[in-house]
């Protein structure tokens, strides 16, 4: 027999976990994409030395497990005097992780912009910063928008790992509840559905933003 009603008394625990996961997701999505945009710009247009630095960062993060990155930041950094709260460590780990993956995605978008577009901006007298923000970014992001959306969702789902350093997120809530009432099936099923709902919501938000940013595609 299944007893979903046994979860009701823990609804506060679930809601507070959900809130933590949502907060971290919103924050790290914004910061991570900003970091990725900056790194992609350097990797595409920067000088040789700064390109090298970005490459090392990207490859380091993309070729190591997220949980190791998180443990290193939370358990490792105190050894060199950086004490972080679980929440801070998670925020940094998630941002750095999304930053690395989105760097490669966004760089593909930047690479798709023709040299002619940049020359046109140049001969009109735009400086490089103006060219980036006015001419390059919108069409570049349009090209890679679906891939970027998926990556943000992957990172949101991957954030479940932060419960391992006792951040009280949604997965932490599920663990807690099932350890109290032994309703593992019900507890994890409800949690899974909540993550599913979050994914759908996040995709919905990205689509709505995309419709505004790339309005020219649908205009007549």
């Amino acid at each position: 027999m299944l007893y979903f009603s046994d979860l009701l008394q823990y609804s506060d625990v679930f809601l507070s976990g959900l809130k933590t996961t949502v907060e971290l997701t919103v924050l790290t999505t914004i910061l991570g994409v900003a970091l990725g945009t900056a790194c992609a710009t350097i990797r595409q247009y920067g000088n040789r030395a700064s390109q090298r630095v970005v490459s090392v960062y990207v490859e380091l993060i993309r070729n190591t497990p997220f949980i190791v990155q998180l443990f290193f930041i939370f358990f490792g950094l105190p050894a060199i005097g950086m004490m972080l709260s679980p929440w801070e460590a998670s925020m940094i780990a998630l941002t750095i992780n999304l930053g690395a993956y989105s760097t490669e995605i966004i760089r593909a978008g930047l690479a798709s912009i023709s040299k002619g577009q940049i020359e046109a901006a140049k001969v009109l007298g735009l400086n490089f910063r103006q060219t980036l923000t006015r001419v390059i970014f919108v069409p570049a992001f349009e090209k890679i928008y679906p891939a970027l959306t998926s990556q943000c969702i992957i990172v949101m789902l991957g954030s479940a790992v932060i419960s391992q350093i006792s951040v009280q997120d949604l997965t932490y809530a599920a663990n807690l509840v099932q350890s109290r009432n032994f309703r593992a099936f019900e507890s994890y099923l409800v949690t899974a559905l909540m993550y599913l709902g979050l994914s759908i919501l996040l995709r919905f938000a990205f689509n709505a933003l995309g419709k505004r940013l790339f309005a020219y595609r649908t205009a007549d």
């Binding site: 002619g116 577009q117 901006a121």
Partner: peptide, 20 residues
């Protein structure tokens, strides 16, 4: 180049209008 842009205009074979 940017100062020059004030006195020299250029038109390209592929138009290079900004699509967005």
């Amino acid at each position: 180049v940017r100062r020059l842009a004030l006195s020299v205009g250029m038109i390209f074979q592929n138009f290079n209008l900004f699509p967005h």
